[in-house]
Computed example of a mutant assay.
Amino acid sequence: MKNAMIWITMAAAAGLMACGHKVERRDPGPPVTVRVSEAAPRLMPAGETYTGSVKSRRAVTISTKMMGRVLRLHVEEGQSVRKGQPLVDVDAAEAQSAYEQAQAGLRAAEVAAANARRDLERFTSLRAEKAVTEHQLEQVKAGAAAAEAQKAQAEANLKMAGTLLSYGRITAPSDGIITRRWLDSGNLAYPGAPLLTLEDPSDLEIGVAVPEERSRLLAPDQAADVRVDGFPQPFRGTLTSVVPAADPMSRTSSVKVAVPPGTSLRPGQFARVRFDALAEKVLAVPEEALLTQGQMDGVFVVEQGLARLRWIQTGQREGGFVQVLSGLSAGERVIAPVPAGLQDGTPVEVAP
């Protein structure tokens, strides 16, 4: 009983001491001068990014005009070539035989024509001496004319045979880059069947498949932001065409974006495109107003002369601004930039 009374007495004394102690309140100090910016709707690029491939606007599909086995391919995919450079050798044994036959035919025709010209000269002299009749001379003239015609025909045959023989070696029709090899050596080539694809790297575009409902907002001469893998800087491209008919399988429309000259891109590179016409107005604040702690983003809002920390959900960032998805309303004033050491509840004074 005695011990219980002692504990009660000590507790009462402690209570009296606590009641008599004055709690010190920290002086918040003078207000911090800050600059503010209003959270406001801002036009920002659409969040969706569409993928496409860089390709040449001038692409040539190279094929052979004769049937034959591919003897050799002189180029590889990605290789640059010059006009007239050998690309493919096709077996032209039959064309070679036909060319040799045409050469022999021309030689025979030339001999026959030469003999006919000598006969004509001789018969012309004999006719002047009245040693032959006019009818005989006319027959010799006809024979000489026929020999000359046969010679001309033989020359045309040789020219055609030479053209066919030339099909055995295919050369580059222009400068460019080989972007695809359709066949390897040893395969049989058919007239019109593709062997190689040659593209001009000086005139490029990007082909993009865009969903049908979004493509309706696009039109030629609009601008787009383009990023290409392996290319250090994004660039601005211009839409050149929008095919209104959608692919029935994928429900997408084909959109083409011109690549400005001097970008050093190559056909086949992978590109990501964002279209200006798909931009939307979103609530945004300056990026310098953002306070990041771990994976959380916040801003300081000015409320009744105090800086109040507000955690927000952010979206895309563009041009020094960040999209606010939630946690903030339009018109609220946020502190930007955030002074060092600013704490929640700090008195602030907005700079004029």
Rank of each mutant, 00 (worst) to 15 (best):
V210D: 01
A156W: 08
Q85L: 06
A146N: 15
Q304R: 09
E100L: 11
Q269G: 04
R82W: 10
R266C: 07
R227I: 09
A11E: 07
E24N: 07
A128T: 14
E110W: 07
G294L: 06
A336G: 08
P286D: 03
I170Q: 04
S264F: 10
V111Q: 14
V334L: 09
A95G: 10
V322I: 14
Y190W: 12
G268I: 02
R72E: 12
A104T: 15
G230H: 15
V60N: 07
M296W: 14
V324K: 00
A131H: 14
Q343P: 02
L106H: 11
A46G: 15
K130G: 10
A39E: 03
V301A: 04
A154I: 02
A145S: 11
V111R: 10
K256Q: 13
E94P: 09
A92W: 03
M67E: 12
A279T: 05
G176Y: 00
A95I: 03
A279Y: 05
L16H: 04
A95K: 04
P194E: 00
K55E: 14
K130D: 15
E318L: 05
R180T: 10
Q222G: 13
A245F: 12
A109C: 03
A279S: 15
L196H: 01
V228H: 00
V32T: 15
T263M: 15
L325T: 12
P211W: 03
A193T: 09
V282M: 07
R214N: 06
R236K: 15
P352Y: 01
Q85I: 04
L278Y: 11
V210F: 02
K281C: 01
S326A: 11
V54I: 15
A147N: 04
F300W: 03
A245N: 08
L126N: 11
V243T: 15
A142F: 11
D200C: 08
V322T: 12
V322M: 01
R127Q: 13
R57M: 10
G143L: 08
G143N: 11
P261T: 11
A116G: 14
A4R: 13
D27C: 07
S250Q: 13
A147K: 06
P248H: 09
I335L: 05
L195Q: 05
M160E: 11
